[in-house]
Design a protein around this nucleic acid. Structure first.
Lengths: 353, 353
DNA sequence: CTGAAAGCGCTTACAG
DNA sequence: CTGAAAGCGCTTACAG
């Protein structure tokens, strides 16, 4: 390539100063309209590329926002990202994505990079084991943080997540209302706020119905489709097998349903299944998945908006906003226990998406 | 927060120059071991944060790589990203992700941002309609580009993708060998090299077997799970209905199988189905999906390595590397046409993952 | 082995 | 409405 084109190249070509050129390119009213057009024209012709690093070194505003989640391939986070992106796109903010895969070290190295790049803010679904001090370190170095999906005790920052305990209660209540008394819970871990809250909702709902929880009903661990599939074996081995299972997430539920089918059982007929999140796929799965809408698009857009507001100078708060979940009844719980003798076609023909 | 800690803060505190501090922090052998340790210790104590913008303004190396694909939520790209990430993590390069959703404008604004940030390189799965001149513009401004998944005529840069025509041929040949003569192709568009190549492979394979392609067999368009699901209606309306369908991607195939089940048909028994990509889910889907392994992890890691090598000074080439695809036979094509009378359990019991 | 000085390409008071 | 000059925080020859 030829010599690099910078502000001074344009200034020299037009016999102006770099100050004028800089102002004109950013549409400052201080520059006369004609001059501004001449400058923009010249910039275009010369193939000028704005150097953000130089600008942000001077202004200490980078136009970069970081978004760090467990895994962007997980549709739950994917849907959150989509709404964050929608919100941010209108504000000329570049956003940098990172998957931490629940590894604290990866998250730390990302936060560090954001600090080094002078990022303007960070939306974080914190990795398992994130101490509150990590959040404070970022905040102390002028990197505002907003938490999503999971929260951290004592972090002292704004967070948005679904009301997990309440939501899981909805799923369990629904199964109980259909006549189920032996209900397993598959997936999730006590190491995250999400896992703890959903498990609590499960326990409380059983208790409320006067059902005594048997320890073997709780299959901890699975958090993706594959491990949901693998959990089928353990589920089928439970003595006095449960007639229903609430799953930690839709992904776990979808994998579990694959597993049940593979074992020759019909989800929604032989075993009632619920998911959590209401990802896009839940409506077209067959049987379609009864699940709890977790408001991911609301989480994303509210987090993005809150961050933008802080950048515009609004004071920080440390509230945790709980998004209200909603039960979506579809096919995967059949029509209650009495339907267990029913045939497959009756369900297949019904479209409840 | 207190006063910002910079190199000079450390230098002053220790009575050294910023030059020495800078060298020490980057482990230069020019600095005495003892001094280096004193400096690092002080940096830690003072909470020093390296300012990358300042450094990269000076060195014109940013440590940033851009990765821009259609959609990170698509497992096909997700798996590519995973392997890119693995490769890049070891090289202290930050990578910035972008979904262009096949919108040229979004892709352009991302490439622009990379240019402005002085990114060191770009891995791109080009949006539909990307002109070769866009790639050349980036290259001319010192932003090396490597293409993945799709290629662009005349771009003149290195690219990695699967051999799509050959791969689709494998799927069609397989169905023909099982006795199918009426085979539909669902999904994909002629607007991308991938779509064109896979459709070509489909046509060529039918032709080779002496089967005359009927226009109504080609259902263009679907490229995700939802549209695969929706395509079921059109498929079922084809006069003299095909007994098999090759799908543009696994996602389309999985959606299509949901659609078939919803209509009371059994994929793998009533209708044979193949996918393309061999994403993780293909093996656990029920029926598990016969598909074409598309080498996404190889595409990702080779693209990342090639980019890193270019950053280290290796000369650019303009080759398109075709990764060799491989047929994965599972359950979704049953055991050939004769199995169509078989019952569901016989398939469900077989584990071909 | 360490230091003084210039410069990367912007933006921002300040002056006129 | 436009210009001259300083400075953001680094790194890199160059000197000693």
């Amino acid at each position: 390539m030829a010599q690099k084109v910078k502000l001074s190249t344009i200034a020299d070509a037009l016999g102006l100063s770099t100050a004028t050129v800089s102002l004109a390119l950013r549409d400052s009213p201080l520059v006369a309209g004609v001059t501004r057009e001449r400058i923009k024209e010249a910039a275009r012709e010369l193939g000028y590329i704005y150097n953000r690093r130089a600008a942000s070194l001077r202004t200490s505003r980078s136009g970069i926002l970081g978004v760090c989640v467990h895994d962007v391939m997980n549709p739950f986070f994917g849907e959150i990202l989509r709404s964050i992106e929608d919100e941010l796109d209108r504000h000329r903010q570049t956003f940098i994505l990172c998957n931490h895969q629940d590894q604290l070290a990866k998250q730390r190295s990302f936060v560090d990079t954001m600090l080094q790049l002078g990022a303007d803010g960070l939306i974080l679904s914190p990795s398992l084991g994130t101490p509150a001090s990590d959040i404070r370190l970022a905040e102390e170095n002028d990197l505002p943080v907003i938490l999503i999906a999971r929260t951290i005790e004592g972090a002292g920052v704004l967070g948005f997540r679904g009301d997990d305990a309440y939501g899981m209660g909805l799923a369990v209540d629904h199964l109980i209302s259909l006549g189920h008394r032996r209900i397993a819970m598959i997936g999730g871990t006590d190491a995250t706020s999400t896992g703890r809250e959903r498990a609590r909702g499960y326990r409380v709902a059983l208790d409320r119905a006067g059902i005594e929880l048997r320890p073997e009903w709780r299959i901890e661990g699975p958090r993706d489709r594959h491990s949901g599939f693998d959990a089928t074996t353990r589920f089928l081995a439970i003595p006095d097998r449960p007639t229903a299972a609430v799953c930690f997430s839709d992904l776990v539920a979808l994998g579990f349903m694959y597993g049940l089918s593979r074992a020759g059982l019909r989800p929604g007929i032989d075993i009632a299944v619920t998911g959590y999140d209401d990802i896009d796929e839940a409506a077209i799965a067959t049987p379609s998945l009864t699940t709890v809408a977790n408001g991911q698009s609301e989480v994303g857009s509210r987090a993005a908006r809150a961050l933008l507001q802080r950048l515009e100078g609004q004071p920080a708060t440390d509230e945790t906003v709980l998004i209200h979940p909603e039960l979506k009844i579809r096919q995967s719980c059949g029509h209650g226990l009495q339907a267990q003798a029913g045939d497959r076609a009756s369900i297949a023909a019904k479209d409840c998406t």
